[in-house]
Design a protein around this nucleic acid. Structure first.
Lengths: 236, 236
DNA sequence: TTTGCAATTGACTAACTGGTTAGTTGTGCC
DNA sequence: GGCACAACTAACCAGTTAGTCAATTGCAAA
């Protein structure tokens, strides 16, 4: 019955796999219950490890939380598509940047939850991280490159602040997801059906591009796509 | 020495004042620490009452939280300016609606925090409330009235979904406030100085109105204020 | 085989925390 | 003046929780 697969040989002691299992269950726990609501005992049980092993690897509940937080934040901008976007025509590059930001939020509900959790805690944990911050510089630079290029091309308005623009792009995609539980109740609408996500995506892209192209002389062609493949996935 | 003021006569036992004091301190506690992080003992101490008095008045920690939540949510739409806004020209009415939504978020940080907290808890408490939901119907109706009027006036585009528009207006004003602690660190910018708030306000109004008026033939007058006094204020 | 060390565990605890029990005290009303 | 009841209090408790102690187990190198 027993197979002697080399890759599976060390089923008894496998530190890396164990560590990964802890991190995975910790993420689920923190996402579901927040930092204060999370229970180390539950994480240990779900990961099938002794609680003390968690302290052996991570030192404390908060250190474990920080590790989870860093991992999900770095995933946000891990795909280095900045270079590709900067090469595109400004309007198309911006359209893709907005759309991919939106898509990433939709595809990663855990990120939305942990961003909220971390801000409830005044961002005090993320500030201890050194790995996350650099990723945002690249994003802002890409935005700036596209803004300047768009102005030169005559398709974007002038005097757009890159940070303000980023806040708007993110805010448009973030709020209806982060607050979906109260909003769906208050507004009698399901926000995470595929059709709704598709509608929202088009609306967000449209709003950002309307703003950027507003007041520019040259009449532009249709500025946002109507070809939207479904790739939304709703969380459990 | 003792004054016999009728209004201040019952300093010893004043149920209403005591109840209000508890609610006030509870709000501070829930806003600062969230639901799980809040401590009933701390609320009792801060309100100068015996802890059991809290249970006498409110029954449980969660019931107290719900009361705090209801009060801050109803404040969001308490000012019945819906009627006034509907009377205005569409562009001006919409401009004021966006601006006042923005201003209310800025003026009520506790609301932002509690909205985040409640959504971390999947909105399960707010759903038990009956007082909050009706307020949102009026808001959506006002939005719808202004949208239709704007289309008739020829200043707004057609086919704008009122719910989507509300999500955008709120999202633009909410995100940079709710996530200001991580964002100010990641983007090296203070978001809550008076100058920044003013800039953000103009940007949000501009973006929403650009979207609504985009593609409409008739050229419109300047649609957003450009009066930006400069007075930078450094964050704590 | 031994030895060193990381991986892993079970049992434990000090501090906390929401909630309760069993009252006492003040006030309005008849 | 005394009764009913709400306002208010002190002390306590059972269950929980992050974190610790002391030990055992498996692996790999010498």
């Amino acid at each position: 019955m027993e197979l002697d697969l080399p890759a599976r040989a060390k089923a008894v002691r496998d530190p890396e796999a164990t560590r990964a299992r802890i991190l995975d269950q910790a993420r689920i726990e923190f996402v579901t219950h927040g930092l204060n609501g999370a229970r180390v005992d539950r994480i240990a049980e779900a990961a099938h490890v002794n609680k003390n092993l968690i302290y052996h690897y991570f030192g404390s509940k908060e250190a474990l939380y920080l590790e989870v937080l860093e991992r999900i934040y770095t995933g946000l901008r891990a795909r280095q598509e900045d270079e590709r976007l900067r090469q595109l025509p400004a309007l198309e590059g911006m359209r893709q940047l907005v759309a991919s930001t939106f898509d990433h939020f939709v595809a990663t509900p855990d990120l939305i939850r942990l961003m909220s959790v971390e801000n409830i805690h005044y961002g005090q944990h993320l500030k201890q991280s050194t790995r996350v911050k650099p990723l945002y510089r690249g994003l802002l630079e890409t935005l700036q490159v596209l803004l300047v290029k768009g102005q030169r091309e005559g398709v974007f308005r002038a005097n757009v602040d890159a940070v303000d623009l980023y806040l708007s792009i993110s805010g448009l995609a973030y709020f209806f997801l982060s607050n979906q539980h109260t909003l769906s109740w208050l507004l009698d609408r399901n926000f995470v059906s595929k059709a709704r996500i598709r509608q929202r995506r088009a609306h967000v892209v449209d709003m950002v591009l309307s703003y950027l192209t507003d007041g520019v002389r040259k009449p532009r062609s249709r500025k946002h796509e109507l070809t939207l493949k479904d790739q939304t996935e709703v969380r459990r």
